[in-house]
């Protein structure tokens, strides 16, 4: 899980995942359906053209005003391998980690749709070889990486009910 490779898929600033990627405003629709239409209003065709393993490269405040963790379940279904953005909505950021979705705060300038990227979570590095981009980002804390590796908070606690994450962060 420390190294993620995937293609960039671009989405704009201030995207609320509650509105565009959860059932909040589509009551009764399940994750399977939403995964086929997610982000349609802000980026037509986004979900249809999404390939398993692609990385969402979003503008600022991705997940702003969003609190539903179902949005993260939908993204898992779409095959999202990680999300990078200059900033995230607070609750969305937490939900992503609790549900095993890597999220990295990073400058996204210069990255365009289809760029192959490599994300090193432990070292804190984003590389886009075709654009000669190498960006250092603060590495994710060990606690967060342990949660991500376990697949999220609940699987983590089933393995470690004592919260013992070992190492530097406790």
């Amino acid at each position: 899980m420390n190294i993620i490779k995937g293609c960039a898929r671009i989405i704009g600033d201030e995207v609320s995942t509650d509105i565009h990627c959860s059932s909040k405003y589509l009551p009764g629709k399940d994750a399977a359906y939403i995964a086929t239409v997610a982000f349609e209003q802000v980026a037509p065709g986004f979900a249809k053209a999404f390939n398993k393993g692609d990385v969402i490269v979003a503008g600022k405040n991705f997940g702003i005003n969003s609190s539903r963790e179902q949005a993260v379940h939908v993204m898992h279904r779409m095959g999202v391998s990680a999300i990078i953005a200059p900033s995230f909505g607070r609750q969305f950021y937490r939900n992503a980690i609790n549900n095993g979705m890597p999220v990295i705060e990073c400058d996204i300038s210069g990255i365009v749709a289809g760029d192959a990227m490599e994300i090193d979570l432990a070292a804190g590095r984003i590389v886009v070889p075709a654009k000669n981009i190498t960006r250092a980002v603060p590495p994710l804390p060990a606690t967060v990486r342990t949660l991500l590796e376990a697949g999220g908070l609940i699987p983590f606690l089933q393995k470690h009910p004592d919260w013992n994450v070992g190492g530097e962060a406790a």
Partner: peptide, 18 residues
């Protein structure tokens, strides 16, 4: 502070959160 259902499950299980 605001959290999600997963967090509340974790509180029910362990009484703790990150």
């Amino acid at each position: 502070t605001g959290v999600e259902g997963t967090d509340v499950s974790a509180v029910m299980m362990t009484g703790k959160l990150w």
